[in-house]
Write a protein that binds this DNA or RNA. Structure first.
Length: 400
RNA sequence: GGUGAGUUAGUCAAGUGGCCAACGACGGCGGACUGUAAAUCCGCUCCCUCCGGGUUCGGUGGUUCGAAUCCACCACUCACCA
């Protein structure tokens, strides 16, 4: 049992610092029922979460399973500085109201994964504001510039003579101080957070709180393309707020290789269960598509419901396996006869009439499931189901 | 402040007076094959209802029958020097 817990905690992690300490905490939990705290920090800017973000949350949920109390920290104070990523996008400061709103929408999304009873949501302005100038000064005496410059992006910027604001040095210190105040046993974060996470250890030692947090870093999740990190701007993401049908379809469109990665980082299946699946696929007794469907179902159900997820699966089968049309699609209506190319543009199936013509020429366009080839076709009175490619549909009503 | 190099479609990148709506690569889209996987093969990839036409190559103006290509000025980026 303990061994399994350790394996599940380590699962998918990129790096663990002081894993012995984690093992000790787990042991204390299993043998004496002792709880411990795991801290994770989040930005208070508008949370538009995608699966990449949930990798951390998933790990926190695993910790909860094994006796952890989560310190879900919203960095409302530190957000005023902005983590020094070097991109130096001056941050707009959020009002107290905005921060509260964002925190609320975090909770809505986050508690689909985390157990609210074992989660404490905290704001770091609460203890950083009272620090005052002298507290701040004390904090800065714990560290020196040379060591600060060891941080990778500071190092690069210093060498390339790109400006570094003094306030940026404060950021890691404050993040570390959060761990002092919260007396965290463990902190988790992305690999890019290594320096800041280690600062927590350093400061806990400096402030002599009698413990040094262990650190667990999770890798960055790859996006749908399997190469670049999942991000909204790259358009290769699965948003936690995505519609069930989209979510299901997106997971299923992932490559087989990436599927295992997603299993490791996102599924609640245990490692041994996953091993069984892998073995089944390897020896050919289990079809990879089946395995992927299970994953898609699990993920869709997590953010919607099992019922809805099952419906999404059926819909998917209907549209793609059986080549039928979806049960629901966007509906449009126009008055008067309309040419097919214009109709396709108006329904948003195609970005321009030129593109519409090309699509028709290539046999990608269908009306009521019939392939069309006449790009000058006029649509008269009636209802039509327009289709481009395999996945773009729209219903058009012409009143002529 | 000085000197030099550069700015081309979603990205990278050819093109240095007409054959340029502009090579190529990547990405994207469509088709075939499939498990809407991967791999592979084929086609498309500025806009306009076809013929054909229109608007593009940092911006503005100019030279020319004709400019992405030449000239002038402006803007921005990078490198070296101060």
């Amino acid at each position: 049992m303990l061994q399994e817990a350790i394996r599940e905690i380590q699962r998918g992690s990129a790096e663990i610092i002081d894993s012995q300490r984690i093992e000790k905490l787990l042991k204390a939990y299993f043998e004496e029922g002792k709880n411990y705290t795991v801290k994770a920090g989040f930005d208070p800017t508008a949370p538009d979460l995608h699966l990449g973000h949930t990798v951390l949350l998933q790990k926190l949920a695993t910790f909860q399973k094994y006796g952890a109390k989560i310190q879900f920290l919203i960095g409302d104070f530190t957000a005023q500085i902005g983590d020094p990523t070097g991109k130096s996008a001056t941050r707009k400061t959020l009002s107290a109201v905005e921060i509260l709103e964002n925190a609320k929408s975090y909770e809505e999304q986050v508690f689909k994964i985390l157990d609210p009873l074992k989660t404490e949501v905290v704001f770091n302005s609460e203890w950083i504001n009272p620090l005052g100038a002298s507290g701040m000064l004390t904090l800065t005496t714990t560290f020196n510039v040379a060591r600060m410059l060891e941080r990778d992006d500071f190092d690069k910027r210093y060498k390339s003579q790109t400006p570094i604001a003094i306030s940026e040095f404060i950021y890691p210190l404050l993040q570390g101080y959060d761990s002092v105040h919260l007396k965290s046993d463990i902190e988790i974060g992305g690999t890019d957070q290594k320096f800041n996470l280690l600062m927590g250890r350093h400061l806990q030692r400096a402030y002599e709180i009698g413990k040094e947090q262990a650190v667990l870093m999770m890798p960055i999740l790859e996006g749908l393309d399997g190469v670049q990190k999942m991000s909204k701007s790259l358009g290769n993401y699965i948003g936690v707020a995505d519609a069930p049908n989209d979510m299901f379809a997106k997971v299923l469109s992932v490559s087989d290789e990436l599927m295992w990665r997603y299993y490791e980082l996102l599924s609640t299946k245990t490692l041994s269960e996953i091993e069984v699946l892998k073995a089944g696929v390897a020896e050919g007794s289990l079809h990879p598509k089946r395995v992927k469907e299970d994953l898609a179902l699990e993920i869709t159900a997590r953010f919607h419901s099992l019922e809805v997820a099952n419906a999404a699966k059926e819909e998917f089968e209907r549209v793609h396996a059986k080549n039928e049309i979806p049960t629901e699609m966007e509906e449009f209506s126009v008055d008067g006869e309309i040419s097919i190319t214009k109709a396709l543009v108006d329904c948003g199936l195609t970005p321009s009439t030129s593109q519409a013509r090309r699509d028709i020429k290539q046999g990608a366009a269908k009306i009521n499931q019939e392939k069309i080839s006449d790009e000058q076709l006029q649509l008269g009175n009636g209802e039509y189901i327009l289709q481009i490619g395999k996945r773009k549909f729209a219903k058009l009503k012409v009143n002529a």
